[in-house]
Nucleic acid binder design. Structure first.
Lengths: 211, 211
DNA sequence: CTTCCATTCGGCACTCGGTGCCAGTACAGT
DNA sequence: ACTGTACTGGCACCGAGTGCCGAATGGAAG
C-alpha cells in the first residue's frame, strides 16, 4: 500500500562517477506525466526525456515502468517488519496487525494529496493493478511470517497465509473506500473492514456441535 | 480459480468461413508447451506454429498470452453467479460462500492432474500471478454483489468488498496449500482457511464495551 | 453455376517495454 | 598523468500486442 521513499542518507560517496539523478526524482517527473496524460499514453521514452536521462538509464533506476509509482517499497516492508517485531506479545494478534497497517500507511499531511493520486493510479490502471499483485505477495509474506512466529507455525502454513491474504484484502477494501471519499478516515475504515470480516466468517452454528 | 471450459454448443453455424480451430484446442497445445519448456520461454509464435495457425489469429482467440491458461473464465463466473442465486437465504452467508467456492472448484477426477499443472502455472509464474489479479477482481465482484444483495448494501460498499477480498484470499491460501500436498482435500482446506480467519479477526475485547 | 455477403484467416508493418553489450564519461585515490 | 570504479546512454535485438487489408472459405440468393 503506502510506499513513499525513505531517503536514508547515502553513506558512501566513495569512488566512481556520481549518479546524475535519483529514483525519487524520476518517479516524481513520471508521476506528473501519468497524472496529466494517463499512465498508458506516457512511454518510457517520454519519461526519460522529461527527466533528462537516457532510456537505458531509466531501466537502471526502475526494473519496469510499472514500478515507478511504488518507490522504494522494499525498505517500507523492512520498516513494517521491525515495527511488528517491536510489538509486545500481549497485544492481541488482530490489534498488532491493525496497528502495523495503520502505521505503515500513515504519512505527513502535506503528502496526502500526492499519495492519493499515486494510489488511485495503482488501484485503477489495469497494468498497475496486475503488477501490484507481486508487491502484495511480498507484503503478505511479511504478515504471514509475523503471524507464523507468534503462533509457532511455519510461515507457509495455511493459517498464517490465510490471515496474510485476508488482512491484505481487508486493507485494500478499506483503501479503495478511502480513496472514493475525501472525508473518510483510513483508520476507521480499516477497523470497520476487519470487523466486517470477523462477523462474516464466524459461522453461527447455533445449538450444534463442532464437526 | 478453476476455469476449465464449459463447451456450450455453438448455436449459430450460419454463414461465413468456418473457424479453423478453437480456444480450447489452442489452449491445450499451448499448455503442453508451457509445461515442457516453461511459460516464459514459449513465444506466441511457437504456440501459433504448434497450433497450425498464424500469429495474428492467435490474438483473435486470446487477448493476451497470459489469458491462455484461463480458458473461458467469464462463463465460469456466470455459472457461479447463478449458483449463488439458487442458494436459499436461510443458509448462513459464510456457508453459502463456501458452497459456491467448493462447487466452482469441483471438477471431474480425470481432469484433476491437468488442472493441478494449470493452477501451478497460474500461481507460480510471475507474469501470470500478476495477470491473475485482473481475473480475481471480476471474481471478487461476483462475491461482493451477492453479499451486497443479501445484506441490502450497495456492491461497492466496504463490507461486501472486504468480504469478497477475504474470501478470495482465504480460498487462494487454501489452493496453494492444496497444490503443495497431493494428498490434501480442497474442501477441508477451505474450511480450515475460513476458520483461521474467523478466529484471527475476532478481537477478544473481554469484559469491555463496544466502542 | 454465378454472384454476393459474411466471416475468418494471416501476412506486414509498426509501437512499446525490456535486455545485453559496450564504449564513453566522471570522479577518487596513488 | 594513471588506474580503478561506477554511472551513462546509444545501438541492436527480442517478444507482446495492434491496425490494416487483401485473400480464403462457406452459405444463401439470383
Amino acid at each position: 500500500m503506502s510506499s513513499s521513499g525513505s531517503e536514508s542518507a547515502a553513506v558512501r560517496p566513495r569512488s566512481g562517477r556520481q549518479p546524475s539523478t535519483s529514483q525519487a526524482e524520476i518517479s516524481h517527473v513520471a508521476l506528473t506525466l501519468f497524472i496529466e496524460r494517463g499512465f498508458e499514453s506516457v512511454t518510457v521514452d517520454d519519461i526519460a526525456a522529461a527527466a533528462g536521462i537516457g532510456r537505458r538509464t531509466f531501466f537502471r533506476y526502475f526494473v519496469s515502468k510499472n514500478d515507478v509509482p511504488w518507490g522504494d517499497f522494499e525498505s517500507q516492508l523492512e520498516q513494517m517488519r521491525s515495527y511488528l517485531d517491536r510489538i509486545p506479545n500481549d497485544v492481541a494478534l488482530i490489534d498488532a496487525l491493525r496497528m502495523a497497517v495503520i502505521h505503515f500507511n500513515h504519512l505527513p499531511s502535506d503528502e496526502v494529496a500526492y499519495h492519493r493520486r499515486r494510489m488511485t493510479l495503482l488501484l485503477t490502471v489495469p497494468t498497475l493493478v496486475a503488477h501490484a499483485a507481486l508487491r502484495y505477495a511480498a507484503w503478505r509474506q511479511v504478515i504471514a511470517e509475523y503471524v507464523a512466529a507468534r503462533m509457532g507455525l511455519p510461515p507457509d502454513d495455511l493459517t498464517p497465509q490465510a490471515i496474510g491474504w485476508a488482512l491484505l484484502g481487508a486493507s485494500l477494501a478499506a483503501y479503495e473506500t478511502w480513496l472514493r471519499d475525501e472525508e473518510s478516515q483510513l483508520d476507521e475504515l480499516l477497523e470497520r473492514s476487519y470487523e466486517a470480516i470477523a462477523v462474516a466468517f464466524v459461522s453461527k452454528r447455533v445449538a450444534s456441535f463442532d464437526e
